[in-house]
Amino acid sequence: MRNPIEDKGIPVKDGLPDSYFEYPKRKYGMDHDRYDWSLLVRRKPVTWPNDARVALWINVALEYFPLDMPGKPFKAPGGTVTTYPDLRHYTLREYGNRVGVFRVMEVFDKLGIRKVTAAINSSVAERNPFLIEEANRLGWEVMGHGVDMGKLHYGGQSVDEERALVKQSLESLRKLSGQKVRGWLSPAKSESYNTPDLIAEAGIEYFCDWVNDDMPFPFKTKSGPIIAMPHQHWLSDSTIMLHYKQSGQDFIDQINDQFEVLYNEAGTQGGRILAITIHPWMSGQPHRIKFLEEALAPIMKHKGVWQATGAEILDAWKKQQ
């Protein structure tokens, strides 16, 4: 990816077109028409079952980073790095589907986390149908997560190409899991302007690429509104420990610090959602699995926590709108 602040090496010459100083969208609300401007503090409070203050939404990402990922228009975070065949990063990621995810399942079992949402690349489901069977056996909700991490949705992509990706991933996941598949997470959270329309058209009810809120909000599409669900992207294991290169303790602290803020806020402003994404290729390593347990154990022991899937949270929220 480009770093926008870098010098482009173009000689500095004065003179921008006058239109650069005209602002046709400078008016109340957003500069696009996909959702309404809305302050979280001014919204109607919601309540969760049993008067819980915080809904804990655990999202497990089961991903496939192919050896020949094209990097178009950029490589998804966690993607291959070296010259082909980059067996090093390829196998490190595949470790998650082969070994790591079962450690993650054990942690969930130990802590009593039963309502899990799994964002699954359809390639993972096809290559490892056993994982889908396991997800179903455990009662996990299956969420669409594109075809694989090399097939991004992005601005400039043709709508036909993108529609085919949505179709391929959802048809495959629905067939293999037998689930309705109501939720969506785009690979690398990358979208084109068409993505929300295409996933809504394919029957998706909620998605979590838009990290601009801590509560759900309606998002307009050509097929009617879908719901943008919150997703605390900066709390995921890979953001903290791979991209920021912070420690396991930092991961534990940040999850619990976030929980405390949400829990306190819920005391006066209504229910909140703590949405954490776990990558088994990251947290499932033997030296990291304890961090996952230590991050989640205090929250699971805390009063006022409702552990739920994305779809369950969506339904509870929708009923109160």
Binding site: M1, N3, K8, I10, P73, S190, Y193, H233
Partner: peptide, 18 residues
Amino acid sequence: PLRTSWGRPIPDVLGYAE
């Protein structure tokens, strides 16, 4: 001409939403 706004192609959903 001298500076790019977003790291990803527009719409840079992650950057904008952040």
